[in-house]
Design a protein around this nucleic acid. Sequence first.
RNA 1: GCGGACGUGGCGAAACGGUAGACGCAGCAGACUUAAAAUCUGCUCCUCGAAUGAGGGUGAGGGUUCGAGUCCCUCCGUCCGCACCA
Length: 853
Amino acid sequence: MSRYNFRESEAKWQQRWSERGCFAARQDPVRPKYYVLEMFPYPSGKLHVGHVRNYTMGDLVARYRRAQGYNVLHPMGWDAFGLPAENAAIAGGIHPAVWTAENIATMRAQLQRMGFAYDWSREISTCHPQYYRHEQKMFLDFLAKDLAYRRESWVNWDPVENTVLANEQVIEGRGWRSGALVEKRLLSQWNLRITRYSDELLDALKGLDRWPERVRLMQENWIGRSEGARVRWALASHDVTIEVFTTRPDTLYGAAFLALSPHHPFAEELAGRDSTLAEFIAECDRAGTSEEAIETAEKRGYSTDIEAIHPLDKSRRVPVYVANFVLMEYGTGAIFGCPAHDQRDLDFARKYKLPVVPVVLPPKEDPATFSIGDTAYVEDGTLFNSSFLNGLSVSDAKRAVGERLEAAGDGERTIAYRLRDWGVSRQRYWGCPIPVIHCPDCGIVPVPEDDLPVELPQDVDFDQSGNPLDRHPTWKHVACPCCNSPSQRETDTFDTFFESSWYFLRFCSARAPIAFERDAAQYWMPVDQYIGGVEHAVLHLLYSRFFIRALKECGYLDLDEPFAGLFTQGMVCHQTYQNAEGEWLFPEEVASDPAGRLTDETGRPVIAGRNEKMSKSKKNVVGLDAIVDTYGADTARLYLMSNSPPERDLEWTETGIEGAWRQVNRLWRMVSEPSVPLPPPDAVIPDEVGAKLTGVRRITHKTIAAVTDDIDKFHFNRAVARIYELTNALEDLPAEAPDAGAVLREGLITLTQLLGPMMPHLAEEMWQELGQPGLVAETAWPKADAALIRDEHVTIAVQVNGKLRATFDFPRDAPANEVEKSALALPQISRLLEGKPPRKVVIVPNRIVSVVT
RNA sequence: GCGGACGUGGCGAAACGGUAGACGCAGCAGACUUAAAAUCUGCUCCUCGAAUGAGGGUGAGGGUUCGAGUCCCUCCGUCCGCACCA
């Protein structure tokens, strides 16, 4: 019994594909293009099996589309800037560039061993000056278009990484990588004006019909559009107007107070003269921003003893507070409180003994008796206690108030967004230098284009904390490009999401002297199928959508969206193990004793924990090299595709990979030791081969149709199941029939072609064994014979009163009355009918007869 | 709190509103082996029955329909995203 020799085979076919340049992409205007892309990796070290699931999916799609005749672009590169490289430098004395290059070499070799059909001639690495110089140019263009600006603002400071984080990078009050509680700091930072496109980014989501609904919703929530009004309140005792944003202008007559953010300019002004207020504000700043801190934080206000004049009724006054729950970053940094119709305002009003006046009357309530208890009324109703609004619905009242405010100049209807501009400054070395110079006389001066790229210095030390660029003895000292006086370079670098916001464009013309050739981008873009993790739903995916718009505005290209199709794959999970001390163990460190109990290598007990996403920190990872060494790339690829729907998590198990290995050998044996001698490749199948063999041919052709459909819909697990079904049918083929060999041969050729995108090495080996010409990688996708996928006979089920009672075979598309007659004549059915005619019979052609008695 | 997804055998999962459990894993029995591994054959949702078979079954309850895992309503549970957002 022969075993499939994957070691020999996989290396051989990888070399053959490479020699023939099978996967090099060339622009070709007459062929339809297809751009397949997997989110490019950060070169963090070595790949484990969890990393390669999405590359396997991408490769399957790339090879499938190529077989279908598309001109496929399928590139790979490295998101090479980032903190782990710097941390390695701090910990191990290795330069980030060296560490990164070594990791790239390792991971590239791992990907190549998997046999992925990449066009390696387009490989890019974002830490190379020939890459990042182009984004420095983009930044200068953004500056010119006012898409980039510098501003002092409160930012998220990660005390572990010693750098600023964007809002998108703060998850539940913690840094997205470090997990450290984020602090607020006031810093001067470069920002990209993503909010210029808030509306457009939101609207265009509707057109992304090949994106998961979930991701679109997440972006929608993140952009957070709220319709409402700005309302200006004059202060009774100061020559100051406080502008508030509200989504409920209809409840203005229920206003009980105004509340300012502790960082509101007027609050800060007052604090200058009021030390108690200054202390209150300082206290607010000390409070954490984490979920727990916010959840438990008391809603507190500081009464300023100042009154504001009600904009709709100048005789009314409301007190002005400074309150810890008002955010400076959203709306205008000030609110008006209507306790009757907002729960938080109600809590605040009860605490500070403010009046609670309902102005929206619930249906069927009596205005004379309706009052608010502990719960604010937030539903729809009819306005009352509200002057000219009385009797209106909530939505009519919103419009009426808007019109009144606009006419009086006291406010206007407007839209607020949750989305804030993208802060891109990072106080780190291993990133793209921001190409500006700070001149004491001229201020901020962009680096002239001819001086690009601003390259990172190589000679840096990581012995002290903080940004090595800032400490470098010479790098930052330059002459001002305008006035030549001694100046300093910007020492911050870009957020690494800057690089990943346009790399897909660079792939279109990866060696161009400019960022990307316009016609290449116009040909290949948008990405037809993008594949990656859902964790980038509002990070990379939103930034890239912004970049396309910003680049369009700067004249780089004409494109609406970067990614036409998006697929977010599930994680690969594995059981976790801990010893009695709570230390995590690698799966290979765990054994079981004769009694079946789990132990470590020294025999001490081990506790099996939850099944979780593979991660280095919990050590529940399975190295890719070990798996490919033992089972080969195709077995790993098959397992990753076979057991779970691609969007769902996949559990990696030893028995699972062994099962895949069995299938690989089974497939190989089918061609290396066929159950029936195969005729030569040019043999023809006779028109009539008998019922049993025709049945096998039908399954063969139905499998083509089914697998094609499954791959189109990303149902890779089902495609695998269909291939197994065909395998089972071919194994059961009646060997004694005269034309069995020819039918088997047809089946095996089809099977091989269908395996091509999934297990490409095995497919080539089988193809060669079958004596087929050329390479599977260069062979067109099979077509199902329409005549063969239509059965001549169908099995029809018979239900009586909704219960399945019998099935019978009948010619396809037989007349309904004949089907009914045969169904009712069945002994199981006639017995139930007891000679009475049925009340009703529903017939679904070729499928079911439903009898009602 | 707001928004969303999901709930099917021992397990991973299939199922245009039309024969629930394809395909695989694990398990059981057998064949081949001195033996094991590998491989092959058969069985495997539950209950009753020797068996043809009968009854029940897709988180719970209700509804629409000739027919519901699938559609609608209520509830329970799990997971995910956002969250002092005015």
